[in-house]
Amino acid sequence: TTIHVGDLTLKYDNPKKAYEIAKKLAKKYNLTVTIKNGKITVT
């Protein structure tokens, strides 16, 4: 599972963990989490 945050690309083997991290990042920086085709993007 890949999380895209701006220019950063973070890879995680565990999709659930990746989603949790994405949610935390989104909350911290007041951003939105988008999931599309298995890719998690924080914008």
Score class of each variant (00 low, 15 high):
D7G: 13
V42S: 00
N30F: 07
P15I: 13
K39S: 14
V5E: 02
V33N: 00
V42Y: 01
A22F: 06
Y29A: 04
A18S: 02
A26F: 04
T1G: 09
I40C: 02
T43Q: 12
K23Y: 12
I21N: 05
A22L: 08
V42N: 00
N14Q: 06
G38M: 05
T1W: 14
A18L: 03
Y29T: 02
K39M: 15
L8D: 03
N14Y: 06
N30S: 08
D13K: 08
L10R: 05
N30V: 03
K36H: 13
H4R: 14
L10H: 04
K11G: 08
K27I: 10
P15H: 10
K23D: 08
Y19A: 08
T41A: 07
G38D: 08
L8R: 07
T32V: 13
T32G: 04
L25D: 00
T32S: 10
K28P: 00
Y12D: 03
V42R: 00
I40A: 01
K39W: 12
L25W: 03
K17V: 14
T32N: 10
L10P: 05
K16H: 12
G6Q: 04
Y29F: 11
T2K: 06
D7I: 10
T32H: 10
T1E: 03
L10W: 04
K24R: 12
T32Q: 11
G38Y: 05
T9Q: 12
E20F: 10
Y12R: 00
L25P: 00
I21H: 06
N37F: 10
Y12C: 14
L10M: 06
I35R: 06
T34H: 12
K39N: 14
N37A: 11
A26T: 01
I21D: 05
A26P: 01
K39Q: 15
T1N: 09
G38C: 01
N14W: 08
E20D: 10
N14S: 14
Y12K: 01
H4N: 09
Y19F: 13
G6T: 04
E20L: 10
Y19N: 05
D7Y: 09
V33G: 00
L8E: 02
N37D: 14
H4S: 10
A26S: 05
Y29G: 03
I21A: 14
L31F: 07
K24S: 10
K28R: 11
T34G: 05
D7S: 13
P15Y: 15
Y29H: 09
A18Y: 02
L8V: 10
T9N: 09
L10Y: 05
Y19E: 09
T43E: 12
K17G: 04
L31P: 00
T43N: 09
N14V: 05
K16M: 11
A26C: 02
I3V: 13
N30T: 04
A18M: 03
N30M: 07
I21M: 12
P15K: 08
L31G: 05
L31H: 02
Y12F: 15
K16E: 15
L25E: 00
A26L: 04
K16D: 13
A22E: 00
T1L: 12
N37Q: 11
A18G: 03
N30E: 06
A18N: 01
I21S: 05
L31W: 05
K17F: 12
I35C: 08
T34L: 11
E20K: 10
L10D: 04
A26K: 03
L31T: 03
T34M: 11
K11N: 15
K27C: 08
E20N: 08
Y29I: 02
K24Q: 11
T1P: 05
G38Q: 07
H4T: 15
V42H: 01
V33W: 02
L10I: 13
K23P: 00
G6I: 08
D7L: 06
K11D: 12
I35M: 09
A18T: 02
A22V: 06
G6E: 03
V5I: 15
K27L: 11
T41P: 00
L25R: 01
K36F: 09
I40P: 00
L31A: 05
K39V: 15
T32A: 10
K28G: 02
A18C: 06
K16T: 12
D13F: 06
D7M: 08
V5S: 03
Y29K: 02
A22D: 00
E20M: 11
A18W: 04
G6A: 04
T43I: 11
T2S: 09
A18P: 01
K16P: 03
L31I: 04
K36P: 01
K24V: 09
T34W: 04
K36S: 14
A22R: 00
L25K: 01
Y12W: 03
P15A: 14
L25V: 06
Y19V: 10
T1Q: 06
Y12P: 04
P15W: 15
L8M: 06
K23V: 14
K23T: 13
K27F: 07
G6L: 11
G38T: 06
T1A: 12
H4M: 13
I3R: 02
L8G: 02
Y12S: 05
V42I: 13
T32R: 07
L10T: 03
T2G: 03
T1R: 08
I3D: 02
I35W: 05
Y29E: 02
N37H: 11
H4V: 15
K24D: 06
A22N: 00
K28T: 06
N14H: 06
H4C: 14
Y12G: 05
T43P: 01
T2I: 13
K36V: 14
I21R: 02
T32L: 10
K27E: 13
K16N: 10
L25Q: 01
I3Y: 00
I21G: 04
D13A: 09
T41R: 09
P15F: 15
Y29N: 03
T1K: 06
N37W: 08
H4P: 01
K27T: 08
L25S: 00
G6N: 04
H4K: 13
V5P: 02
G38N: 12
P15N: 06
T43G: 13
G38P: 01
Y29R: 02
E20H: 08
H4D: 08
T41G: 03
K23Q: 13
K24I: 12
D7W: 11
A26D: 00
V5N: 02
I35G: 02
Y12A: 07
T41N: 09
E20V: 07
I35K: 07
G38R: 07
A22T: 03
K27P: 01
T1I: 14
K28A: 08
I35E: 06
T34Q: 12
T34S: 12
K17E: 13
T34N: 09
V33I: 14
T9D: 10
Y29M: 04
T2N: 05
Y19T: 05
Y19R: 08
T43H: 13
N37T: 07
A26Y: 02
L8C: 15
N30L: 05
K17A: 10
V33M: 10
T43W: 10
N14K: 04
Y29Q: 01
K24N: 09
N37V: 09
T32C: 07
I40E: 01
D7H: 13
K28I: 11
L25A: 01
K36E: 14
I35Y: 07
K23I: 15
I21Y: 10
L8H: 06
L8A: 03
K11M: 15
E20Y: 11
L10C: 07
K17M: 14
T32I: 14
K23H: 13
Y29S: 03
K17T: 13
N14C: 04
A18H: 01
T34D: 07
T43F: 11
Y19M: 15
K28N: 06
E20P: 01
I40D: 01
T43M: 13
Y12M: 05
T9F: 11
G38V: 03
L8I: 12
K27S: 09
G38E: 06
V5D: 02
G38S: 10
H4F: 11
D13I: 05
T1S: 11
P15R: 06
H4G: 05
A22G: 02
K23S: 11
K27A: 12
D7Q: 12
P15G: 07
A22Y: 03
T43S: 14
K23C: 10
K16V: 12
N30H: 11
Y19L: 15
P15D: 09
I3M: 06
K24P: 00
T2Q: 07
G38L: 04
K11T: 15
L31M: 11
Y19S: 07
V33K: 00
G6V: 06
T32M: 11
N14D: 15
K17W: 12
A26I: 03
A22P: 00
I3Q: 01
A22C: 06
D7P: 07
N37Y: 08
Y19I: 14
T2E: 11
K39R: 13
I3N: 02
L31V: 04
V33Q: 00
I40R: 01
Y19C: 03
T9S: 11
H4Q: 15
T1M: 13
N37L: 10
N30I: 03
A26R: 03
V5G: 02
G38F: 05
K11E: 14
T43V: 11
D13S: 07
N14M: 04
V5Y: 08
T9E: 15
G38W: 04
K39T: 15
K28Y: 11
K17N: 06
K27H: 09
V42Q: 00
T34R: 09
K17S: 07
K11F: 15
D7F: 10
V33S: 00
